[in-house]
């Protein structure tokens, strides 16, 4: 059973991408962001699975938008990172920072 609050690496990346995209975070946008910024090619099956999971954990929610002919008339989901999601991201980052302390030389200087 998964513990609430735990974030996998890929989940972190997805949340960060959604944050960057602000109001425009829909599936293809997130995929493009991951590919461009993080150099991660992501299969759509895995992506929607992760979005689903993040939603169930309460880290993401979405609002519905209408779709045009470009989308074959299908609706669009725009994702927002929730307060819990933001908190989880901070916690992960904090944990990483603490663990990294003293290892800067070994890991190379971070920006």
């Amino acid at each position: 059973m998964r513990r609430k609050g735990y974030l996998g690496e890929f989940e972190q990346l997805v949340l960060l991408a959604a944050l960057r995209l602000k109001e425009e975070a829909f599936g293809p946008g997130i995929a493009a962001e991951l590919e461009e910024r993080a150099g991660r090619r992501v299969s759509r099956g895995a992506l929607y699975g992760t979005l689903d999971r993040l939603e169930k954990k309460g880290f993401l929610n979405w609002t519905e938008d209408v779709g045009g002919p470009e989308r074959s008339g299908q609706p669009m989901r725009l994702f927002q990172v929730t307060k819990e999601g933001l908190a989880a991201l901070r916690a992960s980052r904090e944990a990483v920072r603490k663990l990294e302390a003293g290892l800067e030389e070994l890991l190379g200087e971070t920006r």
């Binding site: 829909f26 599936g27 293809p28 995929a31 759509r44 929607y48 689903d52 519905e64 779709g67 470009e70 989308r71 074959s72 008339g73 299908q74 609706p75 669009m76 989901r77």
Partner: peptide, 17 residues
Amino acid sequence: DVTGRSIHGDLDQEFRQ
């Protein structure tokens, strides 16, 4: 539902682009 159909829509949109 919205979830399923929006995924379908995402794929169609990206395909057309």
